[in-house]
């Protein structure tokens, strides 16, 4: 039986067809932007609208967390405060001595100069995470207006966090080093053995390490020469080593130095290219 369309039925049909065409157009734009590794117009719009709301929620969450933690931890805070004050005095003295040493050695002076230029880093606050948790990524509240560039490295007080993958005017999305798609050239500090650090969900692992390397738990792993991070930034510490007899390489499991469980404040580094200028 052939359906008979009234003017009302035709209007509904046209609305459905129009909706499908509009939806297909948006989907194509999304796919195209994802392939190019850029933010689509829709993503920029949604992120720009969502970031202020996320900032409020994130601030409220961290405020509640901090209040709860300070109540629970109050008895040992004064003891810890005294210990940290002592440590600060010691570190200040060490810092002064190291600056003096850096000033007299030309090679070290160059390194110190590079480290000093890390002060060009842009401080940012973490306002959101990937909504589905499928990709290990965070959203920060600084974007292209603040000078954040795509591909820039991101660190926190502990160590390497990730790299900027997409930038909007007022926010940026950072792919964490714990994500499966992340890879960072790295080096074991004691021994200078090279490898690639890849994400493995909650931790990271260093692959392609030569079988000759004598690795031990506790060794520090730092960034190597790459396009995203300046060399020497702490990634984490080795916790175990997998050494297959038939394999050409070793794999080291690493506990990241960055506090991925409670990321709040991070620094977006200038690209290494701009550091060597």
């Amino acid at each position: 039986m052939v359906p008979i369309y009234t003017s009302r039925g035709e209007g509904k049909l046209l609305a459905v067809i129009g909706g499908i065409i509009l939806f297909a157009l948006v989907a194509l734009l999304q796919i195209d932007a994802a392939r190019k590794g850029q933010e689509s117009f829709l993503s920029q719009l949604v992120t720009t609208v969502a970031v202020p709301v996320e900032s409020v929620f994130a601030a409220a969450g961290s405020g509640l967390h901090a209040a709860g933690a300070s109540v629970v931890n109050f008895p040992r805070l004064s003891v810890e405060n005294a210990r940290l004050r002592d440590e600060l005095h010691t570190l200040r003295a060490q810092d002064s001595a190291l600056r003096e040493a850096a000033a007299v050695a030309p090679e070290v002076q160059r390194f110190a100069l590079r480290a000093a230029r890390l002060s060009d880093a842009i401080p940012a606050t973490v306002v959101g995470y990937d909504p589905s948790g499928a990709v290990n990524a965070i959203t920060i509240n600084r974007g292209s207006r603040a000078g954040v560039e795509q591909g820039a490295g991101v660190v926190d007080a502990g160590g390497v966090v990730g790299r900027v993958d997409a930038v909007s005017p007022f926010s940026a999305k950072v792919l964490l080093i714990t994500d499966y798609t992340s890879s960072v050239p790295a080096v074991v500090q004691q021994g200078r053995w090279w490898g690639i650090v890849r994400g493995s969900e909650t931790r990271v692992q260093m692959t392609y390490i030569s079988q000759d390397a004598k690795l031990k738990a506790g060794m520090r792993v730092v960034t190597g020469q790459g396009r995203v991070f300046p060399p020497g930034l702490l990634i984490g510490h080795i916790i175990s080593v997998v050494r297959g007899d038939a394999s050409l390489y070793q794999v080291a499991k690493i506990q990241p130095a960055a506090a991925f469980g409670r990321l709040e404040h991070v620094l977006v580094l200038p690209k290494p290219g701009s550091l060597t200028k």
């Binding site: 989907a27 999304q30 959101g128 589905s132 990709v135 990524a137 997409a166 792919l175």
Partner: peptide, 19 residues
């Protein structure tokens, strides 16, 4: 589809997978 599109817009590297 609408919820997925919003999630894709806020997520990273997902294209229209959530949608």
């Amino acid at each position: 589809a609408l919820c997925g599109l919003a999630e894709d817009a806020l997520a990273m590297q997902t294209g229209v997978a959530h949608t």
